[in-house]
């Protein structure tokens, strides 16, 4: 329950902080931190335009996409405090439920019969497929290290160990951060602010969405950021009592948002053709974590 509320609060600010960071770096004042939330509320009040090509898939897809991210949010714990849903292997469920959302967002893009949206759909399908192994191997190595199989148990016991765990935690932070960037279609993979349909991934998929549906998709995006931020927080909090961890949660979420803003300000998007290699390289970082875990457990000897 705790994680649920915290993630909701973090989600409200997260994207605003990213935008603010980017504005400051580019020498602008920038919109208020809550502007993204206001945008969404405005969208929720609007009517919608639908393409005549679309079918029922286009109508249900945004709701399912939102629901999938929402379900993923319920699974995420907060240190020793369970998420609303917790069971052995919940991280498998976490990845697969996000896949459900992706499946629907891809087919809803195909539903419009547009050439641009197919392009985005094709890239999204390929990149998310390539990013998934990294997550599974990361969770596998954490499971191996802690001897547990659910998010909450893994994160609660992760902390008790040698200092190498911190090194691994930093690598893991990198992997999760990058997965978050891929899942949310942010900078090194995709440029959300680009103005050419041919070079977009996520943005081009939702070209035909408007009104309430677009609001749902944007909200899901904000939540997704906060969910991955919460996963990163979880790598560090362990069994520390909540008086300390709640401020820590917000500080880390803030830092992650600032980091994303900084990356976006100073980096250019990769060439589309090179994205796949970059994403798959994440898997090798995860493998590195796995071998680190083997080292700690002394399995090599």
């Amino acid at each position: 329950m705790l994680s649920f509320i915290l993630i909701l609060i973090a989600a409200a600010f997260f994207t605003g902080i990213i935008i603010r960071t980017k504005s400051i770096f580019s020498g602008r004042k920038g919109p208020g931190i809550l502007q993204p939330v206001k945008d969404v509320i405005r969208l929720f009040r609007k009517g919608a335009v639908y393409s005549q090509t679309t079918s029922f898939v286009f109508q249900i897809a945004p709701s399912i996409y939102f629901a999938s991210v929402f379900m993923a949010m319920l699974v995420v714990p907060f240190g020793q405090y369970k998420g609303l849903i917790s069971f052995n292997g919940d991280f498998i469920f976490f990845a697969y439920i996000l896949a459900l959302g992706k499946f629907f967002s891809i087919i809803s893009a195909m539903d419009t019969g547009s050439s641009f949206e197919g392009m985005g759909a094709s890239r999204e399908a390929l990149y998310s497929m390539l990013a998934e192994p990294a997550f599974f191997i990361l969770m596998g190595s954490l499971a191996l290290l802690t001897g547990h199989l659910s998010f909450q148990e893994i994160f609660a016991t992760l902390h008790i160990g040698s200092y190498i765990t911190y090194a691994l935690a930093i690598l893991a932070t990198f992997v999760i951060l990058m997965i978050a960037m891929i899942e949310n279609s942010r900078m090194p993979i995709d440029d959300p602010k680009t103005h050419l349909e041919l070079t977009m991934i996520h943005e081009v998929m939702i070209l035909d969405n408007s009104g309430f549906d677009l609001g749902l998709i944007l909200t899901a995006g904000y939540l997704k950021f906060a969910v991955y931020g919460a996963l990163i927080v979880n790598l560090f909090v362990g069994v520390i009592p909540y008086e300390y961890t709640i401020p820590m949660f917000f500080i880390i979420q803030f830092l992650v948002a600032v980091a994303i803003g900084t990356i976006e300000s100073f980096m250019a998007r990769f060439r589309m053709g090179h994205n796949a290699q970059f994403i798959f390289a994440l898997t090798s970082v995860s493998l590195l974590i796995f071998f680190g875990a083997l080292l700690i457990l002394g399995k090599f000897i």
Partner: peptide, 10 residues
């Protein structure tokens, strides 16, 4: 809310 049906964005 008003619902409008148009062609796909091209």
């Amino acid at each position: 809310k008003s619902i409008v049906t148009l062609t796909t964005w091209g």
